[in-house]
């Protein structure tokens, strides 16, 4: 913390200082909690019906049948774990990197389904499976996930946030 103050001794507007200073850390808190809500919502929507979660994975026609259930079963719990870690702010940078990788995987999967011309719901927040060709929303789904990816990227580059376990551990 002290380092940031020393490197910018003079007043005046500085974007870098705004990003690194308390304002940036409050903003980081908002991003962190926002992403936590996203993961919690995604996880909870998928956790209640294991067969539906497996079918959402199967509908992408990417994974072999033997991996469909493990991935469909594990994913909601993984998302809930990320939500929990983000909510308390433990290991924010690592969690942000994992979140980003997961989101890139999702975006890749949706793009692949789109490119192959199959008609599915992404199953991002529950649901999933085949839909009528007129009901696909690939662009919206990709844009939405890209937004979440930006949030994860912010936290990966600025993991220091207010009210976090990380701060309490003086990391």
């Amino acid at each position: 913390m002290a380092g940031g103050q020393m490197s910018e001794p003079r007043g005046g507007f500085s974007l870098r200082r705004a990003v690194d200073g308390p304002a940036g850390e409050w903003f980081g808190l908002a991003v962190r909690l926002g992403l936590a809500v996203v993961w919690a919502w995604a996880g909870l929507a998928k956790v209640s019906d294991p067969a539906a979660a497996a079918q959402a994975v199967r509908a992408y026609e990417i994974l072999p049948e033997s991996l469909v259930k493990p991935v469909g079963y594990a994913l909601p719990f993984l998302e809930l774990a990320l939500a929990l870690l983000l909510a308390v702010g433990l290991g924010v940078r690592a969690v942000a990197v994992i979140s980003g990788l997961l989101l890139l995987t999702f975006i890749g999967g949706i793009s692949s389904a789109w490119a192959r011309g199959i008609s599915i719901d992404c199953g991002c927040f529950g649901g999933g499976g085949a839909v009528a060709a007129s009901q696909t929303e690939y662009l919206q789904e990709i844009l939405r996930d890209t937004g979440f990816l930006l949030m994860a990227a912010w936290l990966a580059f600025r993991p220091r946030t207010k009210l976090s376990v990380d701060a309490w551990l003086a990391m």
């Binding site: 993984l78 940078r93 690592a94 990380d166």
Partner: peptide, 17 residues
């Protein structure tokens, strides 16, 4: 902390399955 994060995530996945 990074180790803890990885462990939590891995355990969550296994527990989920």
């Amino acid at each position: 902390v990074s180790g803890v994060v990885l462990a939590v995530v891995a355990i969550a996945a296994v527990v989920g399955v």
